[in-house]
Amino acid sequence: MKKIINNPSDFVPEVMEGILLAYKDRVKVLDKDKRILMKSTKTKKGKVGIVTAGGSGHLPVFLGYVGDGMLDGCAVGNVFASPSAQKMTDMIIAANNGAGVLCLYGNYGGDTMNFAMAVENAEFENVKTMEVLVKDDVASRPKEEAAMRRGVAGMVYAFKVAGAAADEMLSLEEVAKVTQEALDHIRTIGIALSPCIVPEAGKATFSIKEDEMEFGMGIHGEPGIEVCTMKKADEIADSILAELLLDMPLKKGDEVSVMVNGLGATPLEEQFIVYRRLHMKLAEMGVTIFIPHIGEFATSMEMAGLSVTIFKLNDQFKKYLRVTASTPFYTNYNK
């Protein structure tokens, strides 16, 4: 293992300390273990709170989107492990501005169980909550089992939509509804070229041969659709796009946002080579692209590879993508 860390067991706390020191004007922690990150900028009274939670090891997901225009809070667990129900409860209660709290998170076993418990606890304290789960990973389950899919990079678009809808002072039910509608139009597929190493484990949990790639791999190394020989960028872009279109067909005149997301060790240059091809292909189909997102949005430590997300838009979603958001890890001023 070659990592720039101190003690493996200090990995999460030291990451949190670094983030707090860098962005103390915008975020704060609620607890002394530094597992609950909350927005510290001014929040409108009566705005629906938006929160998420998940394991560490995916920056900027999840906590990087805590800030103006996106999330009010995020609870983080150990690397690739859910935070406890208690941390989630404390976060939900703190994120309530009187209008209830939307829990918006990826569909993973530990997170759903703990959120279920946290939501009950919050309701016990008279905080109204709703849950929307992100299930955008097309490769994780076939279309008939879409309800059991995992949540990956597409959640960033969901955070943006939910945050913008909440800033418009919509009700909890309305924010949940529009966020779910957005997710119904969001699909993602990833490919991995090399594995990642959980600091406390010290070694990779799986391997990919030098001349191979895994098509459809999840952000914790969950197996994908197939292991195939390494291909050229254009071929990779084409097969990803074909798979996404199979699940969510697009036609001439449609507008989409496209996210090319680096998994941690893939250079931005390579991401733009893939974006170039996707853009050309979509243009050929008569599909236009609105606010493309290229860069690292949801990573898996030093995993090499990328994911592609397509978000099929309508006027409301376009407005929500455009409206300003500024968090320590996300801004759309530059988009």
Binding site: M113, A116, M117, E120, N121, E123, F124
Partner: peptide, 13 residues
């Protein structure tokens, strides 16, 4: 264990 917690939580409510 979590299922038992839900049972107790349901009673608590």
């Amino acid at each position: 264990g979590t299922i038992m917690s839900f049972m107790i939580m349901g009673m608590a409510k």
